[in-house]
Design a protein around this nucleic acid. Structure first.
Length: 473
RNA sequence: GUCCCCAUCGUCUAGCCUGGCCUAGGACGCCGGCCUUUCAAGCCGGCAACACGGGUUCAAAUCCCGUUGGGGACGCCA
């Protein structure tokens, strides 16, 4: 077989959403697996709705998840001559004709037909009129066959048969001279040598309209594979209503691209019981045969679990770098600037088991990056009691006398203190935790100590003693 | 309305093509326990599904038909 060539062809009429990324991912994986080419093509023939910002957002999104392309990004608006040439060829071959029906008329007729329960398609009234495009404002229609069947041997759905009599003559060139989707895709897929068209389910009905165009133009028809859609919790096609569906929104919420990829690939594709896949593994194992035919509901909980997994197992150094931009978002921007990369790495190691997103991690980092903390009232109430005050004071004295303020020495000092006082670690760890972090939950107490450093430990211990010793109502 | 697609725990799925190994497996979530300096993580256990009805067969989650349900498409959008 010829070398595999696939493409991802989004239209820049909005941001790149989850569903688009999954389609891109499946194409990308298919290409990488087959050592073929992955082409990025921007379908911007809708002059009214396409925007430069959307193109940028698509590119940024693709880069963020790491889906790199071998060719492109091509823009259809740069290829107008090609479509017009091909369209004229069809006209000359008498496989296309000019139509002077007005858009408004067509719309009215369509509504009328729908209301009467008839097929809403174009009735073909200009089909045999032999109109010449004298005024330059006619649309060009493809003359579709009304007989026989068009069969799609879909790589995912299997054999799908369409009766040609349900097809109408679709417009391939608008009166503006711009090609329509169903025509430009065919021309581009043919000219770019695309061998496999892997796209959303919502295009399955377009396939029997596109196949005859490939044939009329004399090109090979590519293989098709139609992916089921991703739905929201309400089982409707994923849209803005379902909250953050822009892929970049997930970046901002503190998700890791590898978690996103891993989650998305499992939405419709499986390899036995396996859930976690590295990228090389995905490239090696991905195939269309194990792609689910039915649609899948997007499950934020599982994505979050997946993200937590990658945070826990990720390389601390990289995570630390990814974490930095999030401090600003949680109001720790200034405090975090003073922090060294080395220290931050240590912080990541301490926090990664309890953070599901980078936002959560940044939030949890507050007591460690800030100089001053506010002790939660309930925590102080419960653990910073008058009885604990002297113990805290004695511990502080011991810490003050320590000259080598290293984790090991501090831990030894702490344990020695427990021994001398005849205490179990559980009796003192919680009060100390509350004094040092202001919270009842934190990483291991010795990790906390290691993170804070002498000055802050002593200051917070003293603050804790003060809180514990105060008289209460 | 017409056409097309789909149908296993709440959700993602394995199994289906090539019927028996299925008392239907895994994962997320949920519940309980263990571990434990807290919270997590980890480990162990639990709840929970073959949409329905007909066939075919010795045997059906698996094959066939129908019903129901869900989704998508029917644009001078893509």
């Amino acid at each position: 077989m010829a070398d595999v060539r696939v493409r991802f062809a989004p239209s820049p009429t909005g941001y790149l959403h989850i569903g688009g990324v999954r389609t891109a991912l499946f194409n990308w994986l298919f290409a990488r697996h087959a050592q073929g080419k992955f082409i990025l093509r921007i379908e911007d023939t809708d002059q009214d709705r396409s925007t430069e910002e959307a193109i940028q957002a698509i590119l940024d999104g693709m880069r963020w998840v790491g889906l790199d392309w071998d060719e492109g990004p091509f823009r259809q608006t740069d290829r107008m001559d090609l479509y017009r040439q091909q369209a004229i060829r069809l006209l000359e071959q008498r496989q296309a004709y000019w139509c002077v029906c007005r858009a408004e008329e067509l719309e009215a007729r369509r509504k009328d037909a729908m209301a009467k329960g008839l097929q809403p398609g174009y009735d073909g009234r200009c089909r045999e009129r032999g109109i010449t495009n004298q005024n330059g404002d006619a649309a060009l229609r493809f003359k579709a066959s009304r007989e026989g069947q068009t069969v799609v041997e879909d790589l995912i759905k299997g054999r799908v048969v369409f009766e040609n009599n349900i097809l109408d003559d679709l417009i391939i060139l608008r009166s503006s001279g711009y090609p329509t989707y169903n025509f430009s895709v065919v021309v581009d897929d043919a000219l770019m040598g695309v061998t496999h068209v892997i796209r959303g389910d919502d295009h399955l009905n377009n396939t029997p309209r596109q196949i005859p165009i490939f044939k009329a133009l004399g090109y090979d028809v590519p293989r098709f594979g139609h992916l089921s859609m991703i739905m929201g919790a309400d089982k409707a096609k994923l849209s803005k209503r379902h909250g953050a569906t822009s892929i970049l929104a997930y970046k901002d919420m503190g998700y890791l691209p590898e978690a996103m990829i891993n989650y998305l690939v499992r939405l419709g594709w499986s390899f036995g019981d396996q859930e976690i896949f590295s990228l090389p593994e995905l490239i090696e194992k991905f195939d269309l045969a194990h792609v689910q035919k039915s649609s899948a509901v997007f499950n934020p909980d599982k994505l979050q679990w997946m993200n937590a997994h990658y945070i826990r197992h990720g390389e601390p150094k990289r995570l630390a770098g990814l974490l930095r931009p999030f401090f600003g978002q949680v109001g720790l921007g200034e405090a975090a600037e003073k922090v060294s990369d080395e220290w931050l790495e240590k912080l990541v190691v301490a926090l990664r088991e309890r953070a599901r997103t980078l936002v959560e991690m940044a939030t949890a980092a507050a007591p460690y990056v800030q100089d001053k903390i506010v002790v939660e009232a309930a925590a102080a109430e419960k653990f910073l009691t008058p009885e604990i005050a002297p113990l805290l004071a004695n511990l502080t004295d011991r810490f003050e006398r320590v000259t080598d303020f290293s984790k090991t020495v501090l831990e030894e000092t702490f344990k020695k203190f427990l021994e001398d006082e005849g205490l179990k670690i559980g009796q003192l760890a919680q009060p100390v935790r509350v004094a040092l972090t202001g919270r009842t939950a934190s990483p291991g107490i010795f990790e906390v100590i290691d993170l804070l450093g002498r000055e802050r430990i002593l200051a917070r211990l003293r603050q804790g003693i003060a809180l514990a010793g105060r008289t209460r109502p």
